[in-house]
């Protein structure tokens, strides 16, 4: 990894992000939802799961979808080839882009959580959980982005990611029985484990989230190997 090249990519992608209406729309969704919940709550404090619902939506729309879209566009417009022909390595490129997505996610997260009341999440456990979740969603975005050949194709991939991993806390609201297999399974998902971590006394959920991060990292690595060996 080369710091100058990473910062060159970061600078380019930040400028490009600011001029891309599609990317600029992404942070609007979670912020709008936060405002909506705030309006509906009538000033009462939010339960943890609602805060994490906004975190999940945040990370799936800004982090995963943002990363996927940026990578898919480089593939579609053939600009990635120009980067690869330069001395920049694929790691330089991915790290530079991740920093842009990371910055945008952080801003969106802070804004939407401030609207709802950030206090319940201002503790070491919750902050660690959010950092782990960020990497989980980032790795998913990079993995899918590596094989996405067009921006249009990414919209098909983002739906399952959002529904499964971003909106998981919504399952609680669907009125499905607590003992059903679906809910039991969904409870092991990263955002649910983050709620568990914040509300409970055990550190175990952080370990489970870490396993999810490793899984996403492995998925990213497999996608990377696959794209690199395509002749």
């Amino acid at each position: 990894m080369n710091v100058q090249r990473v910062s060159a990519i970061f600078e380019k992608d930040t400028k490009d992000f600011m001029k891309n209406t599609m990317l600029l729309m992404m942070p609007v969704v979670p912020i709008f939802l936060a405002l909506l919940y705030k309006q509906m709550s009538g000033g009462e404090a939010f339960p943890t799961f609602l805060l994490y619902l906004v975190v999940g939506i945040n990370l799936s729309t800004v982090t995963t979808a943002g990363m996927m879209t940026m990578m898919a566009e480089e593939n579609e417009k053939k600009t990635l080839r120009g980067l690869i022909q330069s001395p920049a390595s694929i790691v330089d490129i991915l790290v530079g882009k991740s920093l842009v997505v990371g910055l945008m996610s952080l801003i969106t997260l802070i804004v939407s959580l401030f609207i709802m009341g950030i206090e319940p999440l201002l503790n070491l456990k919750s902050i660690l959980a959010i950092i782990f979740l960020f990497f989980f969603f980032l790795f998913l975005g990079i993995g899918i982005g590596l094989f996405s050949k067009s921006v249009a194709a990414t919209s098909a991939y983002i739906m399952p990611v959002m529904l499964l991993f971003g909106f998981t806390p919504m399952f609680e609201l669907l009125g499905i029985s607590e003992d059903s297999i679906v809910i039991k399974f969904a409870d092991t998902f990263p955002v649910m484990q983050a709620i568990e971590l914040t509300d409970g006394n055990s550190w175990l959920p952080l370990g489970i989230i870490a396993i999810w991060v490793l899984g996403a990292g492995l998925f990213m690595y497999v996608c990377f190997k696959k794209t690199m060996t395509d002749d």
Binding site: Q4, S7, A8, I9, E11, K12, D16, K19, G82, S86
Partner: peptide
């Protein structure tokens, strides 16, 4: 080959100059 369409000529070249 292609360029970053939303960026200026200068910003495109600046990227590669730094890379």
């Amino acid at each position: 080959s292609s360029l970053y369409e939303r960026l200026t000529i200068y910003d495109n070249l600046k990227l590669f100059c730094r890379l």
